[in-house]
Amino acid sequence: METVNFENVFEAKLAKNDFIEPKDWMPENYRKHLIRQISQHAHSEIVGMLPEGNWISRAPSLRAKLVLLAKVQDEGGHGLYLYTAAESLGTSRDEMLDALLTGKAKYSSIFNYPTLSWADVGAIGWLVDGAAIMNQVMLQRSSYGPYSRAMVRICKEESFHQRQGYEIMTHLAFGTPAQKEMAQDALNRWWYPTLMMFGPPDRESPNSENALKWRIKRETNDELRQRFVNQTVIQAEYLGIEIPDKNLKWNEARKAYDFSEPDWSEFKNVIKGNGPCNKERLLARNKAHHEGEWVREAAAAYGKKLQENKIAA
């Protein structure tokens, strides 16, 4: 009888660019890596609703409010796609939410910065969603089937997010001098935190090697960061506002922009929980979770009753 070496089958699938599905054999570290990455990604979508949610009640027009509501609702949806993708690997929603609410789990450092003006809503759509799309387009070809499929759906929806943000920036940049100043101020504050979203530089990225080997990721943090800068410069030029980097310069030999790295000590500090809004975000998530408890309890009681009736019948 022929014996199957599961590890070889797994490796062969990766080599052929085939996808790994929930019931396929996979190395335990691949599973763990994915659970960590997908649940953090889900948490980022959910926590990402907070900075923008801050402006729903103060949006400058009814149109702006409708758009922002729709965008924040999308982020909630993205979180749900990703939570069930992670659950297919054997973790549970309760475990993931518990890790988020107790501060054990991480989420994207970007959401620990405050949204001080309406221009920040524009800058988030333009820069933060722009950076997220760059990362997520790559993840559409991630080797884990449910993750890849969730990414395809998310990318379709995400392009509206970036465009609405850039539209806000154009209104401000071509508005009054005070409005243009708001746009510049938002760019100044969001530029480096956005560059941090791609993760630590390749020379010190602890999880990159496995992620690339297993084709969970297809490109490195630095490659994506460079592409983002190359794409964004012309968009800032059009707005007539300046990217806050004196070293930003086209490099003809590399066919790419040279640019300054963000302050990685700030990045580490925010990840550790010491960013401007870490505490506020966790408090807000905990408050929402506790206020929704009665709904979950009622639903669970209803589910239990259904189950009992089924058994009795």
Partner: peptide, 18 residues
């Protein structure tokens, strides 16, 4: 895709929203 719900009606409504 998939989702959680307690009964058919809830599942259908959640599917529509999601």
């Amino acid at each position: 895709g998939n989702l959680h719900a307690y009964d058919k009606e809830m599942a259908l409504q959640n599917a529509r929203d999601l």
